[in-house]
Amino acid sequence: MNNEQNKIPQATAKRLPLYYRFINNLHLQGKLRVSSKELSEAVKVDSATIRRDFSYFGALGKKGYGYNVEYLLKFFRKTLDQDEVTKVSLIGVGNLGTAFLNYNFMKNNNTKIEMGFDASTEKVGKEIGGVPVHHIDELEAKLEDTTVAILTVPSSEAQNIAERLVKAGILGILNFTPARITVPDHVRVHHIDLAVELQSLVYFLKHYPLDEEETE
């Protein structure tokens, strides 16, 4: 995102890509305007939160009219730097990594996995989902134009690989390993532990019925 949006709450920043995806879908459907209520029902965020999120960016809509879809789309494209492609590297082409390569992200946003890395001779030198897979030993040499990496390696290798990524100039890591890696302050890490998220889901299902839970 642009530097001018740095002061907005992090919770708001995390919701912006969600808003963008829905607005983009509306634009593709030919819809001209949308209300905060419609947005709320689609993205599962309450209307008051949406209005508060949008208020950080000035007057994006009009009372009684709602929001102009084309205007919102242009705004979010600029805010989220959608006109610039962010090159991403994937480290660890196992089952999860392979799924990411086959899916990739370019169809939905401006991020694209450009290359993968692994140690397996069965995968190195091949393309998966149109993405070339290089040997892990080539990591530093190949990451010249990449600042973001997805980490899907075994937990025992996570810290070592993370340190190599930092030395190679990576500034953002999406960590899908259970390991909580340590990096310098200038590097941002988002941890996504699928097992923990699943356990959390089951816990909330048992102890926090939806009809009793307040929307955050």
Rank of each mutant, 00 (worst) to 15 (best):
D193F: 15
R180E: 14
P154I: 14
T98S: 02
L174F: 15
A13D: 05
E216R: 12
D185Q: 14
V69I: 13
T182H: 07
E127K: 07
K123C: 04
G172Q: 12
I181K: 03
H207F: 04
T121P: 15
N6D: 11
K62S: 12
H207Y: 11
L96G: 00
V196K: 14
T182M: 14
H190R: 09
T147N: 08
Y65V: 08
D46F: 07
K78P: 00
T111H: 12
R33Q: 09
E213F: 14
E212H: 05
R77W: 00
Q82P: 02
A13N: 02
L194E: 01
L26W: 04
V166Y: 03
L80Y: 08
I173F: 08
V133S: 02
A48L: 10
T12I: 01
L101T: 02
Y65Q: 09
N3L: 03
T121D: 14
N110I: 09
F204S: 11
I170Q: 00
V45Y: 00
L139V: 09
T49L: 13
A195L: 13
T146H: 08
I136M: 15
K123H: 05
L174W: 14
G172M: 10
T182I: 13
N102V: 08
D193E: 05
N2V: 13
V34R: 03
N108L: 13
L72V: 00
K167P: 02
E84W: 05
L205F: 15
T79F: 05
T177H: 12
A158E: 13
E157L: 11
S47D: 06
N6H: 13
S55E: 01
D83M: 07
A141I: 06
G125P: 06
L210S: 10
G30Q: 02
K87W: 08
V202M: 12
E212R: 12
D211K: 07
E41M: 02
L171I: 10
V148L: 15
E157I: 04
G169H: 11
F117P: 02
K7Q: 10
I50V: 08
I161N: 11
G64V: 03
H186W: 10
G58H: 03
L194V: 11
A141F: 11
L201R: 08
N95A: 13
S36Y: 04
F100E: 06
L194H: 13
E4P: 00
E216T: 07
I50M: 05
I23D: 07
D185F: 13
M115D: 03
N109G: 15
E144R: 08
V93S: 03
Q29A: 12
H191C: 03
A11F: 11
N24C: 06
L174Y: 15
V93D: 01
K74C: 04
N104K: 04
G92I: 02
Y19T: 09
N24Q: 13
N2R: 09
A48V: 13
N6E: 09
T12W: 00
L198P: 00
R15E: 15
K62D: 15
L151A: 05
L151C: 12
G130T: 06
V85C: 12
G130Y: 06
N95C: 01
K87I: 02
T147M: 09
E41W: 05
L194Q: 02
K31G: 03
A168V: 06
L139I: 12
L210T: 13
D46S: 02
E122D: 14
V85A: 01
Y67T: 11
Y67P: 11
K44N: 01
G58Q: 10
H186A: 04
D193A: 05
T177V: 09
F176G: 10
N108T: 14
N109T: 13
N68W: 05
I192P: 00
G94S: 06
